[in-house]
Design a protein around this nucleic acid. Sequence first.
DNA 1: GGCGAAACTGGCCGGATGGGCAGGGAGTGG
DNA 2: CCACTCCCTGCCCATCCGGCCAGTTTCGCC
Lengths: 124, 124
Amino acid sequence: MSDEPAPDIVISLEIDDPALADRLATLLGGVAGLRLAAPGEQTAAAIVARSRDPAGNGEFELTPRELDVLALLAEGASNKMIAQRLGISVHTAKFHVGSLLDKLDATGRTDAVAHAARRGVINL
Amino acid sequence: MSDEPAPDIVISLEIDDPALADRLATLLGGVAGLRLAAPGEQTAAAIVARSRDPAGNGEFELTPRELDVLALLAEGASNKMIAQRLGISVHTAKFHVGSLLDKLDATGRTDAVAHAARRGVINL
DNA sequence: GGCGAAACTGGCCGGATGGGCAGGGAGTGG
DNA sequence: CCACTCCCTGCCCATCCGGCCAGTTTCGCC
């Protein structure tokens, strides 16, 4: 591994918002092992805007707690794990999961994370 | 506003290639003013793969039948539904699901679809 | 022909899941 | 004060899930 040339990872910045793009360019410019791409250059990855669409997920009206549970659900956590991570009882975890299934119109926890991911409520 | 604490820019890492994702996570983890997103967290931007390796998902070597099961899994189908849709017995459906959990290194069906989606094996 | 991989089927069992019922406490706003 | 929502907890129960054991057939490859 010592012979690893460790070439810089080339990343292109594809952000519309000038302010955000500028901040990111400044931050990433000082990172060793990383380099911003010249125009037209082949890149390994790109940074794209993940702007919150105002009408995107606002319609779901998930409660803060439900968002917590949903995030853990997306990690494959069981009700028991959710309860431990959130410091609540398994009963309450099941309660929130049930509400999630209802609001997301899902048939099960797997369907719930699929729906949520599809609609951008969570990022896998 | 001048006393703005300059909140960290939250970025989600959405890279299929585990090696590249790991390198980026390491590099970006040490950048002040920047923070990688927790699962499900709202993010300002995302880092996505640019030039995808054509053999990107070839490493998983899922059998054709397993891909069938995986697709149904992503739709929240139960073992019984999978069996009906594929014209096989519930036992066989469970058999394929078990193989999927093993190959995808998942703890459950929900985790399996999350992993598969993250790595681009399936599109939600 | 032998051999491995893939696909398929069966039974069994502990634990997880989902849905139903009931309630209480905290906070907000009329 | 009362109504409302959110969050939390308890119990019961039918079903589902995941993992274990066992077996079969078909196919391609050496």
